[in-house]
Simulated scan of single mutants.
Amino acid sequence: MKQVADLMIKNVITLKENDSLATAKTLMHDKNIRNIPIVNDNGECVGMLTQREYLRHAFYLVSQFGTQQITKKEEQTPISKAMSKDILTIEPDIDLSTAAEFFIENKYGCLPVVENDKLVGILTPVDFVKLAHAMLIKTE
Protein backbone atom coordinates (compact mmCIF):
# COMPACT_ATOMS: atom_id res chain seq x y z
CA MET A 1 0.00 0.00 0.00
CA LYS A 2 1.87 3.00 -1.25
CA GLN A 3 -0.47 5.07 -3.37
CA VAL A 4 -3.70 6.96 -2.77
CA ALA A 5 -5.51 4.35 -4.90
CA ASP A 6 -4.60 1.70 -2.32
CA LEU A 7 -6.33 3.52 0.55
CA MET A 8 -9.06 5.67 -0.97
CA ILE A 9 -12.75 4.89 -0.69
CA LYS A 10 -13.84 3.85 -4.16
CA ASN A 11 -17.60 3.54 -3.71
CA VAL A 12 -18.19 7.27 -3.25
CA ILE A 13 -21.55 8.74 -2.37
CA THR A 14 -22.13 11.83 -4.50
CA LEU A 15 -24.82 14.37 -5.23
CA LYS A 16 -25.47 16.90 -7.99
CA GLU A 17 -25.53 20.71 -7.72
CA ASN A 18 -29.30 20.86 -8.13
CA ASP A 19 -30.01 18.30 -5.38
CA SER A 20 -31.46 19.92 -2.26
CA LEU A 21 -29.82 20.65 1.05
CA ALA A 22 -32.51 18.45 2.59
CA THR A 23 -31.27 15.53 0.49
CA ALA A 24 -27.69 16.19 1.57
CA LYS A 25 -28.72 16.44 5.23
CA THR A 26 -30.54 13.10 5.08
CA LEU A 27 -27.64 11.43 3.29
CA MET A 28 -25.09 12.73 5.77
CA HIS A 29 -27.22 11.50 8.66
CA ASP A 30 -28.15 8.10 7.21
CA LYS A 31 -24.66 7.24 5.92
CA ASN A 32 -22.80 8.89 8.82
CA ILE A 33 -20.61 10.97 6.49
CA ARG A 34 -19.37 14.55 6.71
CA ASN A 35 -18.24 15.19 3.13
CA ILE A 36 -20.14 14.77 -0.11
CA PRO A 37 -18.45 15.33 -3.47
CA ILE A 38 -20.69 17.15 -5.94
CA VAL A 39 -20.43 15.88 -9.50
CA ASN A 40 -21.82 16.93 -12.85
CA ASP A 41 -23.44 14.65 -15.44
CA ASN A 42 -19.99 13.69 -16.76
CA GLY A 43 -18.80 12.45 -13.37
CA GLU A 44 -16.48 15.41 -12.87
CA CYS A 45 -16.10 16.73 -9.32
CA VAL A 46 -17.38 20.32 -9.40
CA GLY A 47 -17.55 20.95 -5.68
CA MET A 48 -17.74 19.62 -2.16
CA LEU A 49 -20.43 19.91 0.47
CA THR A 50 -19.01 19.46 3.93
CA GLN A 51 -20.97 19.18 7.13
CA ARG A 52 -19.56 22.55 8.16
CA GLU A 53 -20.77 24.23 4.95
CA TYR A 54 -24.18 22.61 5.31
CA LEU A 55 -24.49 23.86 8.90
CA ARG A 56 -23.32 27.35 7.94
CA HIS A 57 -26.03 27.57 5.30
CA ALA A 58 -28.67 26.04 7.59
CA PHE A 59 -27.90 28.71 10.23
CA TYR A 60 -28.21 31.36 7.52
CA LEU A 61 -31.63 29.97 6.53
CA VAL A 62 -32.77 29.98 10.15
CA SER A 63 -31.60 33.58 10.58
CA GLN A 64 -33.51 34.64 7.45
CA PHE A 65 -36.69 32.56 7.76
CA GLY A 66 -36.86 31.20 11.33
CA THR A 67 -36.88 27.67 12.63
CA GLN A 68 -40.46 27.06 11.47
CA GLN A 69 -39.39 27.35 7.82
CA ILE A 70 -36.04 25.51 7.91
CA THR A 71 -37.30 22.18 6.55
CA LYS A 72 -39.15 23.81 3.67
CA LYS A 73 -36.22 26.10 2.85
CA GLU A 74 -33.73 23.21 2.89
CA GLU A 75 -35.95 21.35 0.42
CA GLN A 76 -36.01 24.43 -1.83
CA THR A 77 -32.29 25.24 -1.62
CA PRO A 78 -29.96 23.59 -4.14
CA ILE A 79 -26.60 22.33 -2.92
CA SER A 80 -24.93 24.80 -5.29
CA LYS A 81 -25.85 27.59 -2.82
CA ALA A 82 -23.85 26.01 0.01
CA MET A 83 -21.10 23.91 -1.57
CA SER A 84 -17.50 24.92 -1.98
CA LYS A 85 -16.41 25.17 -5.60
CA ASP A 86 -12.80 25.97 -4.77
CA ILE A 87 -11.64 22.45 -3.98
CA LEU A 88 -8.35 20.67 -4.11
CA THR A 89 -8.20 17.22 -5.62
CA ILE A 90 -5.59 14.49 -5.69
CA GLU A 91 -4.75 11.78 -8.22
CA PRO A 92 -4.84 8.06 -7.39
CA ASP A 93 -1.17 7.49 -8.21
CA ILE A 94 0.10 10.05 -5.67
CA ASP A 95 2.26 8.60 -2.92
CA LEU A 96 0.41 8.08 0.38
CA SER A 97 3.10 9.91 2.33
CA THR A 98 2.52 13.00 0.18
CA ALA A 99 -1.22 12.80 0.81
CA ALA A 100 -0.63 12.37 4.55
CA GLU A 101 1.61 15.46 4.61
CA PHE A 102 -1.12 17.41 2.86
CA PHE A 103 -3.65 16.49 5.55
CA ILE A 104 -1.20 17.33 8.33
CA GLU A 105 -0.33 20.74 6.89
CA ASN A 106 -3.77 21.82 5.67
CA LYS A 107 -6.22 20.17 8.05
CA TYR A 108 -8.67 19.29 5.27
CA GLY A 109 -11.46 16.85 6.04
CA CYS A 110 -11.18 15.03 2.72
CA LEU A 111 -9.65 15.02 -0.71
CA PRO A 112 -11.60 14.00 -3.80
CA VAL A 113 -9.54 11.63 -5.94
CA VAL A 114 -9.81 12.31 -9.67
CA GLU A 115 -8.43 10.60 -12.74
CA ASN A 116 -8.89 12.06 -16.22
CA ASP A 117 -11.15 14.71 -14.65
CA LYS A 118 -13.53 12.04 -13.27
CA LEU A 119 -14.15 11.38 -9.59
CA VAL A 120 -12.81 7.91 -8.77
CA GLY A 121 -12.59 8.05 -4.98
CA ILE A 122 -12.24 10.05 -1.82
CA LEU A 123 -9.50 10.09 0.82
CA THR A 124 -10.02 11.23 4.42
CA PRO A 125 -7.88 11.45 7.54
CA VAL A 126 -10.01 8.64 8.98
CA ASP A 127 -8.64 6.37 6.24
CA PHE A 128 -5.15 7.04 7.60
CA VAL A 129 -6.29 6.34 11.16
CA LYS A 130 -7.75 3.00 10.01
CA LEU A 131 -4.46 2.19 8.27
CA ALA A 132 -2.46 3.05 11.39
CA HIS A 133 -4.80 0.94 13.51
CA ALA A 134 -4.42 -2.05 11.18
CA MET A 135 -0.64 -1.67 11.24
CA LEU A 136 -0.62 -1.48 15.05
CA ILE A 137 -2.69 -4.64 15.35
CA LYS A 138 -0.42 -6.42 12.89
CA THR A 139 2.70 -5.62 14.95
CA GLU A 140 1.23 -6.74 18.29
Rank of each mutant, 00 (worst) to 15 (best):
residue 88 L to K: 11
residue 120 V to W: 11
residue 16 K to M: 13
residue 1 M to N: 10
residue 51 Q to V: 04
residue 138 K to P: 02
residue 80 S to L: 03
residue 105 E to I: 07
residue 126 V to Y: 04
residue 71 T to W: 01
residue 97 S to F: 08
residue 135 M to I: 13
residue 135 M to Y: 08
residue 84 S to G: 09
residue 87 I to E: 01
residue 100 A to W: 10
residue 84 S to W: 10
residue 27 L to P: 09
residue 13 I to A: 13
residue 126 V to Q: 15
residue 91 E to M: 11
residue 89 T to P: 05
residue 93 D to L: 13
residue 16 K to L: 12
residue 3 Q to D: 08
residue 118 K to G: 01
residue 138 K to A: 15
residue 82 A to G: 02
residue 85 K to I: 03
residue 119 L to C: 04
residue 7 L to V: 09
residue 25 K to P: 03
residue 64 Q to L: 12
residue 84 S to F: 03
residue 100 A to V: 12
residue 2 K to D: 10
residue 63 S to L: 00
residue 6 D to C: 02
residue 108 Y to T: 12
residue 44 E to H: 11
residue 134 A to Q: 08
residue 124 T to Y: 12
residue 20 S to V: 04
residue 8 M to Q: 09
residue 17 E to K: 15
residue 27 L to M: 14
residue 4 V to Y: 11
residue 76 Q to T: 13
residue 59 F to L: 08
residue 120 V to H: 06
residue 20 S to C: 03
residue 57 H to G: 07
residue 51 Q to M: 04
residue 90 I to M: 02
residue 57 H to F: 02
residue 106 N to D: 09
residue 65 F to R: 14
residue 70 I to P: 10
residue 42 N to Q: 15
residue 120 V to N: 04
residue 124 T to P: 09
residue 35 N to E: 00
residue 77 T to P: 07
residue 54 Y to C: 06
residue 5 A to Q: 13
residue 66 G to V: 10
residue 8 M to C: 10
residue 56 R to S: 13
residue 34 R to H: 11
residue 30 D to R: 09
residue 109 G to Y: 11
residue 1 M to K: 14
residue 61 L to E: 03
residue 100 A to F: 05
residue 53 E to P: 05
residue 48 M to R: 06
residue 15 L to E: 07
residue 110 C to A: 08
residue 111 L to F: 10
residue 117 D to Q: 13
residue 132 A to R: 12
residue 39 V to P: 01
residue 135 M to P: 09
residue 50 T to N: 14
residue 68 Q to V: 04
residue 91 E to G: 07
residue 29 H to E: 12
residue 55 L to E: 01
residue 88 L to Y: 08
residue 135 M to D: 04
residue 140 E to D: 11
residue 2 K to P: 00
residue 69 Q to I: 02
residue 60 Y to I: 04
residue 137 I to V: 07
residue 26 T to A: 15
residue 26 T to K: 15
residue 15 L to T: 00
residue 14 T to F: 10
residue 48 M to I: 05
residue 124 T to M: 00
residue 8 M to A: 04
residue 83 M to H: 07
residue 99 A to D: 09
residue 107 K to M: 08
residue 66 G to F: 10
residue 72 K to R: 15
residue 50 T to C: 07
residue 81 K to E: 08
residue 65 F to W: 02
residue 127 D to W: 12
residue 47 G to A: 08
residue 98 T to P: 03
residue 67 T to N: 14
residue 74 E to H: 03
residue 108 Y to S: 01
residue 45 C to W: 07
residue 4 V to F: 09
residue 60 Y to A: 05
residue 85 K to R: 02
residue 52 R to E: 00
residue 127 D to H: 00
residue 71 T to S: 11
residue 121 G to N: 02
residue 87 I to F: 06
